[in-house]
C-alpha cells in the first residue's frame, strides 16, 4: 500500500543506529569546537536557535508513532499514527498525519500546508463521513490536535524570523516522564521565545515558550508553554535521545504534560525515516488521500 515507506524504513533505522555507534566521537569534537569558537555566554537566543535548527532540522521525515492519551484519573487511550513531513521551500513544510488505530478512526487523515506570510491550509479526511476532504477554516493554529495536548502550532516548524528569542540564565532542566518522575537532568541554555510578528501574535496560543536546550547537543529537551496571558499552561519533555546522523538527534519519546487540562499525551516514535523517497511530493496532495493511496 505504501511501498516507499516500507522499503526505506529499515535502512533509515539502520542509519540511525550506525550513527549512534560510529559518530559519537566526531559529534563530540564538533560540539567542543562550537563551544570553543563561541562560548555560550556570548551566544544570543537567536544564535542558539539557529544552531538548533542547523543541527536538527531535516527536509524529509516520516515517523510511526504510538500515542497514549492519559487523563487525570489514569484512563488511557491508545492510538497509532503515521506522520509525514516535507520541506517545500526554505522553512516551509507540508505535513500529512494518518491514523491507523484504533479501528474507529482508521484512515482519518490531516493534511497541512504551511504558507509564507499567510495562515496554514489544512484539510481533514474522515472516512466514515465520505470521500471528500473537509477544509479547515483558518485560525486553527492554537487548537489542540485531535484531542491531544499538542496544538497544531506545536507540531509544525517555526519561522525563526517571526520570533524574538530572549536568552535567560542557564539552568539544569528536569525532564520528567508520564508518572511525574525526573528521568534526566540536563545542563541547558534557556531561551524564551516571544512572537514578534503581529499576525503571529494574534494567532498563537502562547505569550511565550521557555525552551530548555541541552548544551551538549543543542536539542530542545523541554518546552514550558505560557498562555496568551502569560500563565503557565503545559510542558513538553523529550527523552530517549537517538542520533539520526551527524549532529542530528531525535527524541524517541515525547510527553506533553498539560497542567491546565490535567491531561497528558505521550508519543513514542517506533520508526523513523529521513529520506526524500519516504515523502514524495505527491503524498501531500488531497488526491493522494481521497484516492485511498495513503492507507497501507
Amino acid at each position: 500500500m505504501f511501498p516507499i515507506l516500507g522499503r526505506s524504513f529499515i535502512p533509515a533505522v539502520a542509519l540511525a543506529l550506525s550513527a549512534v555507534v560510529v559518530l559519537p566521537l566526531a559529534a563530540q569534537s564538533q560540539a567542543q569546537t562550537q563551544s570553543q569558537n563561541q562560548t555560550a555566554p556570548e551566544m544570543s537566543g537567536r544564535d542558539i536557535m539557529d544552531e538548533v535548527s542547523g543541527r536538527h532540522d531535516r527536509p524529509y521525515e516520516t515517523e510511526d508513532q504510538a500515542m497514549t492519551l492519559i487523563d487525570d484519573r489514569g484512563n488511557t487511550e491508545e492510538r497509532s499514527l503515521r506522520r509525514f513531513a516535507r520541506e517545500v521551500e526554505d522553512d516551509l513544510y507540508r505535513y500529512l498525519v494518518v491514523f491507523d488505530e484504533p479501528a474507529g478512526v482508521h484512515g482519518v487523515a490531516l493534511l497541512t500546508w504551511q504558507n509564507r506570510g499567510a495562515s496554514d491550509d489544512q484539510w481533514m479526511y474522515l472516512p466514515a463521513y465520505g470521500r471528500e476532504m473537509k477544509r479547515s477554516a483558518d485560525g486553527g493554529k492554537r487548537n489542540y490536535f485531535m484531542g491531544t495536548d499538542f496544538a497544531f502550532e506545536d507540531m509544525t516548524s517555526e519561522d525563526r524570523s517571526k520570533f524574538r528569542y530572549e536568552r535567560q540564565a542557564d539552568e539544569m532542566a528536569e525532564i520528567k516522564d508520564e508518572n511525574g518522575e525526573t528521568v534526566d537532568t540536563i545542563d541547558s541554555f534557556v531561551v524564551d521565545a516571544y512572537p514578534k510578528d503581529e499576525e503571529l501574535a494574534a494567532e498563537t496560543g502562547y505569550e511565550y515558550r521557555r525552551l530548555y536546550i541541552s548544551k551538549d547537543r543543542y536539542f530542545i529537551r523541554r518546552i514550558d508553554f505560557y498562555d496568551r496571558r502569560g500563565r503557565y499552561l503545559k510542558t513538553q519533555h523529550s527523552r530517549d535521545m537517538v542520533r539520526i546522523e551527524g549532529e542530528t538527534w531525535r527524541a524517541n519519546t515525547t510527553l506533553m504534560d498539560n497542567d491546565k487540562q490535567r491531561h497528558k499525551t505521550l508519543i513514542r516514535v517506533e520508526g523513523r525515516e529521513l529520506s526524500e523517497n519516504a515523502v514524495p511530493a505527491r503524498m501531500f496532495e488531497q488526491r493522494w488521500v481521497t484516492s485511498g493511496r495513503y492507507l497501507r
Binding site: 487523563d71 484504533p102 474507529g104 478512526v105 474522515l126 466514515a128 463521513y129 485531535m146 484531542g147 491531561h263
Partner: peptide, 18 residues
Amino acid sequence: VPDTPDLVDQYLLFFQRA
C-alpha cells in the same frame, strides 16, 4: 446523532477530553 460508530469515533476527534 451520527449514523455509524466509526463516524462517532471520528467526530469525537474534534473534542478534547476536557
